[in-house]
Amino acid sequence: MIKRFFSLFFVILLIFVFMPLVKDIKPLSELGVTSQKYAKDGAKELGAANLVTSVVVTYRGLDTLGEVTVLFITTAGIGFLLRKRSTGKNKKRKASEILKSGTSFLLPLIVLFGVYIFTHGHLTPGGGFQGGVVIASAIVLLLLSDINLHTDHNILNWLESLSGGFYIILGLLGLLLAGGFLDNRFLPLGKFGEIFSAGAIPIIYSLIGLKVGAELVGIISKLGREE
């Protein structure tokens, strides 16, 4: 009971600390200085129609690099915690015929949709993270339909490391040939609004998509395969 009063006290304290913050928040009426610069020059400088993409990939590219690193570390931690334990295989129910044939029809479509999302990240809403998640959900469908499938972890590891390495290499190329680390302007900017435009942004975002997709597939297949 004492403990519950303690938690109540803590929550009320938090409310009192945050109350002035909530009261003083006024809705914005103008963009901030940084955002104004991005809005004015972003499309001309980088050639990407989606401003969020150019912020994520180029202006704040180091943030994304750190994020991908955190994702890699958590995946490695999960793989370490769920090491293979030698238990007997237990029997599982076989998936039904409808689910199997439906999966074989739907799986390529879902993967194609994921690839579309991350190659068009600089033109339409979406990008590497969303495309990777869509691909991971396709793999969930595969795991549900064909239960005895073993995802080949070597392929996943290679895919993840290669895309991560190429991501760094592209960043270094930006440092050598253009303005700075992860600068996308070492490739020609192209015509505004077409798919082969915006310099290296589509390539970088595709690599991020592959890396995120491989990591999420790794997490889910490790959790699902565990007996």
Partner: peptide, 28 residues
């Protein structure tokens, strides 16, 4: 006239990465 027509892109970009990290940390 984009300066007077769009919302702030920076919070969207920050939240985009935060959601993915949230999933990974929850799984861990």
């Amino acid at each position: 006239d984009a300066v007077h027509k769009i919302v702030d892109p920076i919070p969207s970009a920050l939240v985009l990465t935060a959601i993915v990290i949230g999933l990974a940390v929850t799984a861990l």
